[in-house]
Design a protein around this nucleic acid. Structure first.
Lengths: 342, 342
DNA sequence: TTGTAAGCGTTATCAT
DNA sequence: ATGATAACGCTTACAA
């Protein structure tokens, strides 16, 4: 049941393998008689060239890889979605790798890097050293939502200004006692949001909280953090959550405490996951162009790959995509005054 | 910047490439002196064997592929999640392909099939003919949520009985005028749910509706279908939705019509997406083991691949995974009496 | 234990 | 226009 090779076709058509290759990929002119015979043989034998043989000869995989922490939640799915679409456009296959916190991630990433022509790395999935190593191996790497490594290309969504605008919006609602739930230490994104949050306070002449309430970016942890925040200060009127999952947990905590979300306790999230608009009240949050992050990542990689021959290394890309405030009801706005601010 | 090859290492260590190969993969004993020299050279040169060269020699890609319609919504993400985890376990890379309704899907799938040792196909993404072709090419295929093709392995989640139990539950709530929103024509899953729905009516001595209200499996379409249903019959007290997205649309339609979901209008979904429990009222639905579907798919594929040498084709797998009713409040149950039925 | 050499299935360079 | 033939980078008999 072994698949036919180029030799089988050549034999069947009574020509050399070079001719078969030419016909099959139209790379050079072939006489009509032979072309016909070859085409017939190809159809007859159901010949498909071996990707492996071809890649080995062409010295390219015609594939891109993407590494992400986990596939739970819509965030990474969306990035992958964009990435895959754009990669397919460029005739690239797509290999995925979820590190899912496993320790062996390093080896898996090395493995993956040996299968692709370019690699997109999301979040804090891979040690810097490994990134360096992969790049030195000649595989272009693009980083998303991750601290920079050397002069690797980086794409991120704007955080600081959006956070400041959101915090300011809350301040204009009259809130004076706000807590920030999240973990600035674990992610550059979180750190920037915290910075924006603080900045808005300063600009309004207010004193921001001294510290964020620490919380991992999951509902469970958000719930715990919100309970903690609420119990510490009874004057708290607003919870600024570093992502929507945390906000979800905050909803639960608020309901448990008998607080009306919106009027009595403002809650905001980040990411604008599909869930957000279906909550009651709908969640005020910040929309990130997740799909676009993936698209851009793939685009930069294909660019780097085609540029690989030419010398004169193009300077590293440092793209910052714009985010969008999505004002809904959970910040205390009435549904009618809600809307979308740039 | 070209990566070092096995020859470079051999030269540096003053040994043959065979010895390098042996050391590198520990496939055969090597004298201590040479082993040390080889290991030193490998470290020195930062040698990583070429996946392409290796795969060509081993005649296997060490990779699995998965084809799905789209990455929007949690359903396919979950399947992929399980698939990836299990594949990684078996040291397989994972290639993804989203057909996203594009017409060129057929070529893309052929392409993909030339890059992997086994393929998982979800939903109605690929024409039967292509599936056959891939299988004849020697690549094992597993089908999920898709009509059977020849004797390819198939995995699905149980539908009929779960649908019947859910419908019966609704009937016990006193509902006599129920509508089924979905598109049995487009998917075997949908067809089976409809069958179960009808069967429950019959068993209770009731007359089921003559036809489902047609709706694609998306919120938008669900909304339209629900409006249509509600306008046709004013006696309608229950909407049995073929998936959660449709139910989401039904929620919107019900709210618009001023109907209290649960008490006045029962709504049920299918899939138990994360959103479901966050709706108000929380959505009664049916939980599918999506992750498990992916895991099983990968497991069967690896099995088929390793069995490929041995003759005596194992008979086709026809796995049916069990589903679970998740009773929440949207069916009219009070939160307290809610719970999970097997 | 170690090395030589024959594949694995292409592409691409050279002659012709 | 066509055909030999040399890579491409590895694994694995087969010899020694």
């Amino acid at each position: 049941v072994a698949s036919p090779t180029i030799h089988d076709v050549a034999r069947a058509a009574g020509v050399s393998i070079a001719t078969v290759s030419r016909v099959q990929r139209g790379s050079a002119p072939v006489g009509d008689d032979r072309r016909l015979r070859v085409e017939a043989a190809i159809a007859e034998l159901r010949y498909t060239p071996s990707r492996l043989g071809r890649s080995l000869a062409e010295r390219r995989h015609a594939a891109l890889g993407i590494v992400f922490p986990d596939l739970s939640g819509p965030y990474f799915s969306e990035v992958i979605r964009g990435f895959e679409a754009e990669a397919a456009e460029a005739k690239h296959g797509v290999l995925i790798l979820s590190t899912h916190g496993r320790q062996a991630a390093t080896d898996l990433v090395r493995d993956l890097s040996a299968r692709v022509d370019g690699l997109l790395v999301l979040g804090r999935t891979v040690p810097d050293a490994v990134i360096d190593q992969v790049r030195r191996g000649g595989v272009p790497v693009v980083l998303i939502a991750r601290p920079q490594v050397g002069d690797a290309d980086t794409i991120r969504a704007e955080n600081r200004r959006a956070a400041a605008r959101l915090a300011q919006h809350l301040i204009e609602h009259g809130h004076r006692d706000m807590a920030f739930l999240g973990d600035p230490g674990s992610s550059p994104d979180g750190a920037e949001r915290w910075t924006g949050f603080v900045r808005a306070h300063r600009r309004a002449g207010l004193t921001p909280p001294a510290q964020p309430i620490p919380s991992l970016y999951r509902e469970q942890e958000g719930y715990a953090a919100a309970r903690a925040a609420l119990s510490v200060s009874s004057r708290l009127t607003s919870l600024f959550c570093a992502n929507d999952e945390i906000a979800l947990g905050a909803y639960a905590a608020a309901q448990e405490a008998g607080l009306a979300i919106g009027p009595e306790l403002a809650i905001s999230g980040w990411d604008d996951i599909p869930l957000a608009r279906h909550l009651s009240p709908p969640l005020t949050t910040v929309h990130q162009p997740m799909r676009e992050l993936g698209v851009r990542g793939a685009r930069i990689l294909t660019q780097r790959i085609t540029d690989q021959g030419s010398d004169g290394a193009a300077s590293p890309v440092r793209a910052v995509l714009t985010t969008r405030l999505v004002i809904r009801a959970s910040c205390g706005c009435s549904p009618s005054e809600g809307g979308t601010a740039r």
